[in-house]
Amino acid sequence: MRRDVFQAIADPNRRAIINLLAGKKLTLNGVADQFNVSRPAISKHIKILTECGLITIKQQGRERYCEAQLDKLREVTDWAEQYRKFWTSKLDALGDFLDNDNELNNL
């Protein structure tokens, strides 16, 4: 199944995993230890995050370390930015309208 970044960040546990790994690399067990969910559930979340490129897993000796790849979140940022610009312009226009309306009412 092809996954995208939007699917990955839709789940609060996956967002928490990204936040956790944004500051440091952790082993798979180190990630699982931070949550009150089963290890198989964490493994599934890690798999989804890996499939969409938000984390990578690297073997170091006997351990497998997870590391965040935050540049993949650019897709979300770019998507949200278009709506931020749209709504900013609409709200600015509404503010101008209300300011003009208040000036007319005060005459």
Rank of each mutant, 00 (worst) to 15 (best):
R62T: 10
A16P: 00
E75A: 09
A10Y: 07
K24E: 15
N100R: 14
N36L: 10
N106L: 13
K85M: 12
H45C: 10
Q34L: 01
D96F: 00
D11W: 02
N36G: 08
E103K: 11
K72C: 09
E63W: 03
V5C: 08
A10T: 07
N105I: 08
A22F: 02
I48L: 14
Q7W: 08
D71A: 09
K24A: 12
D33W: 01
T56N: 13
I17W: 03
S43L: 14
F86I: 08
I9R: 02
I57A: 06
L21F: 03
A41G: 00
E75H: 01
R39N: 09
I42S: 03
S43D: 15
G61H: 06
L49A: 02
V31S: 04
F35M: 10
P12V: 14
V5G: 05
L28Y: 02
T77F: 06
E51M: 06
N19K: 11
R62S: 12
R64V: 01
V31E: 08
K44A: 11
L49H: 06
A41W: 02
C52M: 03
T77V: 14
K25M: 13
L104E: 14
N29C: 01
W87Y: 15
L54Y: 05
F6E: 14
V76S: 08
L26Y: 02
E51F: 00
V5L: 10
A93H: 05
R74A: 14
